[in-house]
Nucleic acid binder design. Structure first.
Length: 619
DNA sequence: CTTAGGG
DNA sequence: CCCTAAG
């Protein structure tokens, strides 16, 4: 449990981070500034006690603060705000708007609007849910449940001396960051404002700019910001003294009014000068924020019309790591129906039902670089263990039948194999050896494929016929043909396993290989494998190549001795008949001298028999 | 993925 | 056989 929480407290020190307070126009109410409520970072330890935040944590927060500041600065630089000195500037604001009016109603806005609105609206739906949550959290945290009782008259308990502070403090604290709060005074009819004006107002409300061009969204946001309420009519936006006045039925609006103010004030001091509860703020910030997070998504929905917003916003705002919640949400969405539009799913989550629990969780699933890590949740013994989910599949190796493997290697293999199997996705019997690559270290090795049941039966038939055919050539046992197949991992003295399985080449195989080479040419291993070795699931092209290499070597080594070697040498498991070696040599020479292209005119030096034999089917 | 080569 | 570097 290392949840970071903000704890209200009077901490002047933190003010250093808010230059806004001292410089700039004289605070209208020095007292408030002297006694602001500031968030202090602490960490709640398991037992409930709190310890000071670590440097790192503080840094993080400061980062955020800076973030915000940097965001605010541009606002100041625009010089649009003529200072927020006094509270009675509303009129001038009006005029200001009028003056700078003109291009506000550019057509693009409206065309763009439709798209934008779509998305943003959706976002809002969702966000609202979050807001509700947050509000509740706040309510419970401050325990006096004031949020829920608008007219309780318990203002005195407000550490900031009552409701009035709401405005004065805000304007005071934020004086320097220039949001023109005067604009927020008195009656505001958002409906009458142009997009540009809305932007102004937005700025004034939140102390930052927005690039959203959706009037509806702006109005809603502003309304929410000003009233600290998330329950904003979607149609009418008349705000008087921080109260939304719904057209027709005024007071009926269930706004939280100033009650939330105290909460929001705390939040305000901390970060943004807007009168928005901080949690709320984080959740419903610009859609761009959200989109930023959403960006992690491959097929993010903001790809078209809102694209510019993203980029624009991103340049201005540092990208924050998506919270775990987002990751979860996204993955959910992604896995379910995500294919570019997450509208519907978002809509769903828009219901207030979303569990508050989920978003308090620490961000653990993300590496420090913000890159989500693909893991597999294994519930082992109650604790969630995340296993890096490796899934390597053998390229085109022998068919490894895991069942057989497990049978053959009872001991350590059992468990390991099982695990591996699970991790690999059972169905694929071609398991990449690489998984076991660590054989020397891991201590266990893959099993030989030998005992393949069905597949092999099938090919054993073919094999059988071949055997007969081969039987003459070699004096091999036709019965135990496969019995010796298994040359399991050879346990080396060190306990580490050596080599996988050694499958001795049978004479028939060799013949086939030679034949194949004769037919398709040296180096066409894949072809030979495909055509001549179709029935041998093991024996990859590489194997063929290797074998050929060996044959070649042998053939040349033996040639001088000719047939004599047959018995001379050490007992080779499958002594290769001289004729074959001879063929090999011939083939080798042919192939060497005659680049693949030429047809047949260049082989005078070889006896016809061989050549013909060799080339049978070739020409 | 397929080849070639080294190990 | 394994592993890898190269097309």
């Amino acid at each position: 449990m290392e949840t970071e929480v903000g704890v209200g407290g009077n901490d002047e020190a933190k003010l250093d981070d808010m230059p806004a307070v001292e410089a700039g126009s004289p605070p209208s109410s020095p007292r408030e500034i002297a006694d602001p409520v500031v968030y202090k970072l602490v960490r709640v330890v398991g037992d409930g006690s709190m310890v000071p935040a670590t440097d790192d944590e503080v840094m993080e927060v400061e980062d955020l603060l800076e973030d915000d500041k940097s965001e605010i600065h541009p606002v100041a630089d625009t010089g649009q705000n003529v200072g927020c000195a006094s509270n009675d500037e509303f009129p001038s604001t009006k005029t200001q708007f009028d003056d700078s009016e003109g291009q506000c109603e550019n057509p693009e806005v409206d065309t763009e609007k439709s798209h934008t609105q779509l998305d943003t609206t959706v976002e809002l739906e969702k966000l609202n849910a979050g807001i509700e949550e947050t509000v509740h959290l706040f309510a419970t945290n401050s325990n006096d449940g004031r949020i829920d009782q608008p007219e309780s008259g318990g203002e005195c308990s407000n550490p900031l001396d009552g409701p009035i502070e709401n405005e004065s403090l805000v304007s005071a604290v934020c004086t320097n960051s220039k949001p023109d709060f005067s604009k927020l005074e008195g009656e505001i009819c958002l409906d009458n404002l142009s997009v540009r004006e809305l932007h102004e107002t937005f700025k004034a409300t939140f102390g930052r700019e927005t690039s959203v061009k959706d009037k509806q969204w702006l109005k809603r946001r502003i309304a929410m910001g000003l009233t600290n309420s998330c329950d904003i009519s979607t149609t009418t936006f008349v705000i008087i003294d921080n109260k939304v006045v719904k057209k027709g039925k005024e007071g009926s609006a269930k706004n939280v009014e100033g009650k939330l103010a105290e909460v929001s004030v705390t939040g305000a001091v901390n970060e943004n000068c807007g009168g928005l509860p901080i949690g709320c703020n984080n959740l419903i910030e610009n859609p761009e924020d959200v989109s930023d997070e959403r960006l992690r998504n491959p097929g993010a929905e903001y790809d078209c019309s809102v694209g510019d917003l993203q980029t624009e916003q991103r340049s201005a705002k540092r990208v924050r790591k998506p919270t775990k919640r987002y990751i979860e949400e996204l993955s959910e969405v992604e896995s379910s129906e995500y294919s570019g539009k997450l509208v519907s799913s978002v809509k769903n989550s828009g219901d207030v039902q979303s569990s508050p629990v989920s978003h308090v969780r620490p961000v653990r699933d993300t590496w420090s670089d913000g890159r989500p890590v693909v893991t597999r949740q294994d519930s082992l013994g109650g604790s969630d263990v995340q296993v890096p989910y490796v899934c390597r599949v053998r390229r085109s190796r022998p068919r490894e039948n895991f069942m057989a493997l497990m049978e053959l290697q009872p001991s350590s293999m059992g468990m390991a194999t099982k695990l591996a199997k699970e991790a690999l996705g059972v169905r694929d019997n071609k398991i990449e050896k690489k998984v076991f690559k660590a054989r020397s270290t891991s201590g266990w090795i893959q099993k030989p494929p030998v005992t393949e049941s069905e597949k092999d039966k099938q090919y054993q038939k073919t094999k059988a016929s071949e055997l007969e055919k081969d039987a003459e050539l070699k004096h091999m046992d036709s019965s135990g043909y496969y019995s010796d197949d298994y040359t399991g991992p050879v346990p080396t003295a060190k306990g580490g396993m050596r080599r996988k399985h050694h499958r001795p080449w049978t004479l028939s195989e060799v013949v086939k290989l030679v034949d194949g080479v004769a037919r398709y040419g040296v180096g066409r291993w894949s072809e030979i494998k495909r055509l001549a070795f179709a029935s041998y699931s093991y024996r990859t092209s590489v194997d063929l190549k290797d074998k050929w290499r060996n044959l070649l070597r042998a053939s040349f080594a033996n040639s001088p001795a000719e047939k004599g070697m047959l018995s001379s040498r050490k007992h080779v498991s499958v002594p290769i008949p001289a004729p074959i070696l001879l063929r090999v040599r011939e083939l080798a020479e042919i192939q060497a001298q005659v680049p693949p292209n030429l047809s047949s005119s260049k082989f005078g030096a070889y006896d016809d028999r061989n050549v013909h034999e060799t080339r049978s089917g070739y020409l």
